[in-house]
Design a protein around this nucleic acid. Structure first.
Lengths: 215, 215
DNA sequence: ACCTGAACACCGTTCAAGT
DNA sequence: ACCTGAACACCGTTCAAGT
């Protein structure tokens, strides 16, 4: 008797939730959000259409999991900081950088408050606010202000980064905003050429100043 | 010879962009976002499928126009206030109330920065910040902070108001957040039973305090 | 248990043909 | 010019049948 026949190596890795989420992130980064279809995903994984529904409940579950993946990776990388204000800036900047690299995650974050990535962000913010000595309703007010700002900015910058399917609409937008915001502005460089990252962090600082002022 | 034959009154009103947008708002409010299809809309307007494409470029254009409709209606109703801080609170509360009545608008606002409703909000905020005596890059930083907060909060509250297609996920979310935020909280009423509207306005005040503190 | 892929029940958008 | 509705080119999800 010979040994067992070698397994036919149809796939390098067995199908699993992790493998599927990983492939989803790859596809979102390379092909974009509109081209992420279940069909494209199954082709990428060389499997059948309904196979992924053994590991994932829906396409929305897939988007949530992919977003949680890239946010979670970032959270493990930011260093613990003894200064809670610096820790809040680091967390916010980390989220901005994730959105910059993965615009689809920015759009997803603004969609469902109960998705894992958003819950992780709430936890991180809550912990730092506690370390700032903020308690009671002041803490939940501050937390919701910061989280909502970060998620709102994430979605807006992500949409901006997408460069618009309608480039003409984007131009009209930039010109309208510039006309409204520039007239009494003597600064020769219009505000909307400012670095998005700097403007985002300035918003975090406004928020931190507001919390300190009310403490 | 008799006079001209009476026109067959197939529709009460002729088809127009305004009529289509109006019907879209009605359908979004009654049937919900997922049930707003071009087919349902044409049935509601008793017209042909492609007819609406004579007045509207795409479904996205329709969502933007509907959102601009409900935001624009609100903007004409809020009174001009001589105190710019009070005007900012009134504008923010107006947006909150629109989202509360039309959750679909909250989700739409966070999607595209160049849509008319968002441009209108930028204009309103910019005008009040100027009246607060804020100029230059401080003004664009403050504007983007406030607008991004309002839009982020709008999207989150809108998703929360939708009560979740997945009620179980919503429960897990509320419990996780409560567990993270409640432990050192002596207040017997957990923060997440707080009135959303109050919490939203507290966030606006935090940003206003931050802007004032940095002036 | 895990996977397949045809089938189902839809979509948004276009366009030749009508009035 | 405006409108019609069949046709087009897709979707996400399910499920009987396989291994």
């Amino acid at each position: 008797m010979t040994g067992p026949a070698p397994r036919s190596p149809r796939r390098t890795e067995a199908l699993s939730r992790e493998r599927i989420v990983e492939a989803t992130i790859e596809l979102l980064d390379t092909a974009g959000e509109t081209d992420l279809t279940v069909r494209a995903l199954t082709a990428h994984l060389s499997t059948g259409r309904g196979a992924i529904y053994h590991h994932v409940t829906s396409k929305d579950d897939l988007l949530s999991a992919a977003t949680d993946g890239v946010i979670g990776r970032m959270l493990t990388q930011i260093a613990a900081d003894e200064d809670p204000e610096r820790a809040i800036r680091a967390l916010s900047l980390g989220i901005f950088n994730v959105i910059d690299a993965h615009p689809w995650a920015g759009r997803q974050l603004a969609r469902e408050p109960w998705q894992p990535a958003v819950v992780q962000i709430w936890k991180g913010v809550g912990a730092q606010l506690t370390r700032l000595g903020i308690t009671g309703s002041a803490r939940s007010d501050a937390g919701s202000a910061l989280v909502n700002y970060v998620l709102g900015a994430a979605a807006q910058y992500a949409a901006g980064a997408r460069r618009a399917p309608d480039e003409a609409a984007r131009q009209v937008y930039l010109e309208t905003i510039a006309a409204e915001w520039a007239p009494d502005d003597l600064d020769p460089t219009p505000s909307f050429e400012h670095d998005d990252r700097e403007q985002f962090l300035a918003g975090v600082d406004i928020f931190l100043a507001g919390i300190t002022a009310r403490r």
